[in-house]
Amino acid sequence: MSNNADALDSLMQAARGGDQGAYRQFLAEATGRVRAMLARKIGNDSELEDVLQECLIALHEKRHTLDPDRPVGPWMYAIANYKLVDHWRKRGRSKVVLDDEADMAVDADSFAQVDIAALLSELPEAQAEAIRMTHIEGMTNKEAATRIGIGTSAMKLRVHRGMLRLKEIVEEQDQ
């Protein structure tokens, strides 16, 4: 970690000295570090890349707030964390609201006449796995999240998105 932080510092220093290649390397290194941080917090979800790109743009646009004599790491992670929280806040205000009870309270007959395995195969593997664990094996979101090593929020999101997609697929098949 400290080596990576040092690498970021020296790359940024070189970049500020006019080395454009160093700036590209800095952004690439920062991408790796921020991606790892986001993956720990939200899992390897489809939204990870969106948040990551928002973080990169913010790092670039707010680079004037990095003092030359201070390490890059705390600055970079503070911005990444802020962007992640902001992303969650935006999502909270959008139509996509995580609702455990609604997602868990799917009527058992809803999918009685359909081939569950076939349906799940149409979902991204991460969402299918999340639904398998929570709706078929009966785990809670927290238990399922712990088993595969992601955050509970990330698990809720996977289940929620998976359930929405399943509903769409069933409705398409009914028409």
Binding site: M12, A15, R16, G18, Q20, L52, Q53, L56, R63, H64
Partner: peptide, 24 residues
């Protein structure tokens, strides 16, 4: 990937801030 192309795009600009934060 989109992220890689974003890095390329951002890297075309200077790492040196265009603005002085203290005066802003």
């Amino acid at each position: 990937t989109d992220t890689q192309s974003l890095i390329d795009q951002l890297a075309q600009e200077s790492a040196l801030p265009a603005r002085n934060p203290l005066s802003l």
